[in-house]
């Protein structure tokens, strides 16, 4: 193909201009809707603002208020519980994946049925579980009374409610980790298993020394999505308890929403301060994720 503009400025600089043009719409969108709002939130967190009238600059006032806010403390603790317990999805997912990694007839269908809670929206998962926990109509208590145990009101009890919600969250999250590990197991090198068998490795030893090292990429992704998922938890809390009973199930993401955008008042500045704290917690993990991806990139440079 010959081009009349062979020596034109555009053609000479095409290796710079093409990626620029291709990136422009995506980057622009992302800057407007994601990057700049992050910076704006930092700024708003320094103001007292109801979202409509004039904003008053109060410096770190919102952050000082956070320090003595009991609800904030509860939320922070609950976030930690979410983080710690949500990670159970990873071993649970691995366990189910090992259980299902067989080739009996109908296995494909079984695997997809095990996976499909992940496809449900968190809203539906929340509803399904809040009905499951219902003191009178719920299946959980039907089962408990069948086993001769006392009925419990999971979501009405401040000491149990958060765990009840986390259990609901673990359901789809475990399914997600399971599918990651099933894919990983599919690609495990059969020769290494054979070699391990010849060395007398079996069961746990085989899993720990031969299989798990090969599942490392799957484990990494499982960590990323589970940690992000734990810190993003909002829908389930909003649907199942709306932060209650007595604010015992709040987490930072939910508390922020409550402060900034619900009937409890429109404190945009205070809400943004909470969001900034959540963001900084997340940033630690994001930093780590990016760093390990960067290591991979360096190794894969062509």
């Amino acid at each position: 193909m010959t081009n009349a503009h062979d020596t034109s400025w555009v053609r000479r600089n095409r290796m710079t201009l093409t990626p620029l043009m291709f990136l422009l719409p995506g980057v622009l969108f992302f800057l407007v809707y994601v990057i700049s709002p992050i910076l704006q939130s930092f700024n708003i967190s320094l103001y007292e603002w109801d979202g409509l009238g004039e904003a008053t600059y109060i410096g770190l006032g919102n952050y000082q208020e956070l320090m003595s806010d009991r609800a904030f403390e509860t939320s922070l603790w609950n976030n930690l519980k979410w983080l710690a317990l949500y990670l159970l999805a990873i071993p649970a997912g691995l366990f189910i994946a090992l259980f299902l990694n067989q080739t009996i007839t109908g296995m494909r269908l079984y695997k997809s049925l095990f996976f499909f809670p992940f496809v449900l929206s968190q809203v539906v998962v929340g509803l399904v579980f809040s009905w499951f926990y219902l003191p009178r109509e719920g299946l959980l208590n039907a089962v408990l009374s069948f086993l001769g145990m006392d009925a419990i009101n999971v979501l009405g009890d401040p000491t149990m409610a958060t765990y009840g919600i986390i259990a609901a969250g673990l359901w789809p999250q475990t399914a997600y980790c399971m599918i990651l590990y099933l894919t990983g197991l599919n690609a495990v090198d059969p020769e290494q298993i054979e070699a391990g068998r010849l060395d007398g490795a079996k069961g746990w030893r085989m899993l720990w020394h031969v299989i798990l090292p090969q599942l490392k990429p799957a484990t990494f992704i499982a960590f990323v999505v589970t940690i992000i998922g734990a810190l993003r938890s909002f829908d389930l809390i909003s649907i199942m308890t709306n932060g209650g009973p007595f604010g015992s199930t709040r987490v930072l993401s939910f508390y922020m929403f409550e402060k900034a955008l619900s009937e409890y008042g429109f404190r945009m500045g205070y809400g943004s301060a909470i969001a900034v704290v959540l963001f900084l917690i997340m940033l630690v993990f994001i930093g780590y994720f990016l760093w390990s991806m960067y290591q991979d990139e360096k190794a894969a440079r062509r």
């Binding site: 709002p37 708003i44 990323v224 930072l252 993401s253 929403f257 900034a260 963001f279």
Partner: peptide, 17 residues
């Protein structure tokens, strides 16, 4: 990396703006 990092941020930090 800007795209990846942005994809991980909590929604609440974007909410008000």
């Amino acid at each position: 990396f800007m795209f990846i990092a942005g994809n991980f941020v909590p929604f609440q930090i974007l909410m008000v703006p």
